[in-house]
Design a protein around this nucleic acid. Structure first.
Lengths: 152, 152
DNA sequence: GTGAGGCCTTCCATGATGGGAAGGTCAAGC
DNA sequence: GCTTGACCTTCCCATCATGGAAGGCCTCAC
């Protein structure tokens, strides 16, 4: 949805390369809701405000928000992102620290993937033995109920 | 932790094959906390009570709780379990209905698995290009920051 | 000056689970 | 008969990331 022309009230702010929260959201893919939330939990520092209390964001803020967005897309938790941001901010960081975080998260993903694969595989197996017709007999329910598969 | 001898106060209840919530929890793997929760959301009907208000469970209840436990282990949501229980209770169900629920859930799992595999694979790739040493240079952070991999 | 729409804050909800507090109940041992 | 300790009860709060709704202010274009 096309945004209206820059509001004159913001002329100075815009001249300084600042944006309101809506434009910032569009530019970063982070909803205004979440931007405020990140501020409230300290992931983003408190934004500058206009006289009227509107939040204003500069290019650095956008960069940081895009960083957060990308990290969330990769499944990092807020806490992990906090660590990543600290490392990002630290010019003297050791890349080994970052790598460790990334690999740790990759291992956690792997673990969850395995669990879900086990679930899926069990379900597919059970479904394969279920006629899926109009009759009530159903190995899937039998399994859930803990019944031994009916010995004929 | 070994439970003490059955409490005489429950002699009659026990003679009827009833158990208090703690024993029920041990027997089913569902915590007392969750048993009460399932009752509160209607997944379990309201349990019988002693004079003093203690909940009592019979073999049917245990069976139902084990059913729920197993379904949770397979990743079904509470809402899905509600449907499964309805089918379980319905002697005239069609196994096709059950099969459809199971396969639908399997597809959802597959979808999530794929997403997580994509995350993991990206992370592993990035980590593979990160020296992981004491220097700050780090392709993982570069990626999160949206920086084009540094062209030398 | 009025209407549209962006922005503000605050509260509430999700889903499944756990923690903990404050208090009642029960069996057993002294 | 009282204490002890295991068990039970209800009620409230927390998690994690996200969204919704209400009610009010701000800005802009007409």
């Amino acid at each position: 949805m096309p945004r209206n022309h820059p509001r004159p009230e913001y002329a100075q702010a815009i001249a300084q390369g600042l944006r309101a929260i809506g434009e910032t959201a569009e530019a970063t893919g982070v909803t205004p809701k979440m931007i405020r939330h990140y501020e409230s939990i300290g992931l983003m520092h408190a934004a500058d405000r206009t006289f009227a209390g509107y939040r204003l964001y500069n290019d650095n803020d956008l960069h940081r928000l895009r960083f957060i967005k990308r990290a969330r897309t990769l499944g990092f938790s807020i806490k992990e992102i906090e660590q990543l941001l600290n490392l990002w901010d630290d010019r003297h960081r050791a890349s080994s620290d970052v790598k460790q975080l990334a690999l740790q998260h990759a291992r956690e993903l792997e673990q969850k993937i395995r669990e879900m694969q086990a679930m899926r595989s069990t379900l597919v197996d059970l479904a394969a033995h279920c006629h899926g017709d109009e009759f009530p007999e159903c190995p899937i329910l039998d399994d859930l109920a803990g019944d031994t598969p009916k010995a004929k």
